[in-house]
Design a binder for these strands. Structure first.
Lengths: 205, 205, 205, 205
DNA sequence: CATGAATGAGAGTTCATTCAT
DNA sequence: GATGAATGAACTCTCATTCAT
């Protein structure tokens, strides 16, 4: 019992640190986030952070990993689901929007520190990113095979187009610190992305 | 000992510094780029950088500004041109691809440091970004008025979708340091973006 | 390798730094005193100075403050004492001479960096100085009210004359790094200042 | 003729630089006064300063020297004059007050940079200072020999007391950037210094 | 004479990381 | 576990001084 309690405490502290790091990194960016800022935010001494994370980078990596795993989980479940491609992509969009509402700090870091910065995209981090693209591409490929979607455009290209569209909306929200006002707006954006992706911007005759 | 820059004109020094900065910032990112790295790369003393640019940030700002101005020039010329929306967007895509081939370092910085990092998007820098979106949106709005393009999707949404698609391709090139292998591939990507944007990913029946 | 400061108490470190600063500032003046000089003198790393004092200026301010507080304490006790003005001024002289013997470095800094430099006399520092003059003037005013001292010369003028006389002696000691050789000399100077201040330089008839 | 003209021009530039230096050093102190500040103030390039003064220190030394020479001239003339000691000391006071009104910048530098700072009082500079005291002391010694003034107080002590009184008034003016309001005030201060110096602060019975 | 581009030693300051308690 | 004193590499920025033109 006691041991269990201790372990819980331990994992609790870890979690407090991670949340503090999330908040500070969002505010200042990874480079400008000081360990002391994080410890202050967490209400602990900065020495303690080194008990849980050997280096500053480890903190960052842990945050990133958590993010990716949640995405992979979704993508893997979609892979084996019976949904059509339209609904699969809709789920992806929803996942990002929900994530933004639940953990805006984490989403912010994803956009500003992970998604694009070459510097952060080295080694393991780049692998995470590529895996994300590939898993999405896999859904597209399946759809092409099912003839749900055009095959005269490379699956990778279609993936880029879809993820790019989505990311720009998420970026816009993040960069202007804008909340999605209501579920109606959320729906509207979701519908727009999917509508244009599937049917194009041309005027329908 | 050999004064190898003596024959360079005064104004060229500034340019040499900017190019060196471009290269180093690409390699290390803005935060990790040391002034001494840049001066080494430029083959000058680091004191001289401060002769031309008061602060490290100024260097960065100058680089950014140069980038945006070239984009604005294009967008303004498209605004007054007689091209249809398809051709206008094609020009934008071409501009980015050409820029990537001519100044890959600059494009890299655009993607990794400007395009997304919230930290860098403060004040004037954010204004640049917003202006870019708005100028693109203006083209879309014109097209909607001309009934070249759907009006049942907000112009801002269409803009996000188009720019997001494009940016993802550029990012992919940048992040994997991948050259566009040949003009055929360039054409193919361009065509794919436009095709999906205008006609959608659905299978045409 | 030998940890020679381990046995020092925490609060002592601060004091060690202050004393080292005192010595170095005396030698080189505030501007030329390097933080690394001070840390070397103190036998610690320069990072530690920043642990105790946020900025170089803080170090200086702390030293100054310590000095003034000791003076104010004296002046306040004299204000409420029953001593006549002659004895009060004698105590002030003694205080300066004693301070010089006990902490010559501090006195040196008082004379060379605080007492006169306009640059250092800004804001709070100037207030300290003015307070010092005013507190001394208050003693003179009391004496005038008691008719112990002439009232046909402004109290502020008398204060300037007295403090000026004293300060010049202290300066002379400091500037030639001259010790007060013996208590006899100390008495002689004290007597001379008071004698001339009260009775004048004219030949007594 | 032409050469003469050139020389005049030359000495004119020199003078412009010196005045600019005076102003800037007053504002910022010697250490913080940049050569470029001085050249800006003088309206010339900073390279040119090095034509006239080999080093920054030379500028400072030249300013100091100019100051001392004007004092020495006065003291030497007083030495051989037939004035009584009261009038001699009055002339000294007047000299300082006049100097303050004519060249407040120079006086400021005298007080803040020369008069007290140990750091600046090295070598030749200290000699200047000592010579000043000695020349004043010589007047006092003469007066003692003439029985114009007490001999039971060391001449050096009397000198310190007199110069200290004077300096404090000058300092007060400089430190609060206070002009001597009118000649009446000037007279009053002069009279007070002399009155107390010769007759003391005690109430006359 | 005059300019200001060019140099580079130095100085202050920051902050990740270690480690004794 | 927890603290925060202690360390010192790293970095930006300043500015006196030189020198080619």
């Amino acid at each position: 019992m006691i041991k269990n309690n201790t372990n819980n405490k331990k994992s609790e502290k870890r979690s407090i640190i991670l949340n503090a790091a999330l908040k500070i990194i969002k505010q200042k960016g990874f480079h400008r986030a000081r360990m002391s800022d994080i410890s202050n935010e967490a209400g602990i001494s900065y020495g303690l952070i080194y008990h849980y994370f050997k280096k500053k980078e480890r903190l960052f990596d842990t945050i990133i990993e958590e993010w990716w795993l949640s995405i992979y989980e979704l993508l893997d479940s979609l892979k084996t689901s019976n949904l059509n491609i339209h609904d699969k992509l809709e789920r992806i969009i929803t996942h990002f929007f929900d994530a933004y509402q639940e953990k805006p700090d984490l989403m912010n870091i994803f956009i500003t520190e992970i998604s694009r910065s070459t510097r952060n995209l080295i080694g393991k981090r780049l692998e995470f990113f590529i895996k994300f693209i590939s898993k999405t591409e896999a859904l597209i490929i399946d759809a092409q095979k099912q003839n749900e979607i055009r095959s005269d455009v490379k699956a990778r290209y279609l993936t880029n187009i879809f993820l790019g569209s989505l990311e720009t909306f998420v970026s816009a929200m993040v960069l202007v610190d804008q909340e999605i006002r209501d579920s109606k707006q959320k729906e509207q954006i979701t519908k727009s992305i999917l509508e244009v992706f599937f049917n194009g911007a041309s005027v329908k005759k």
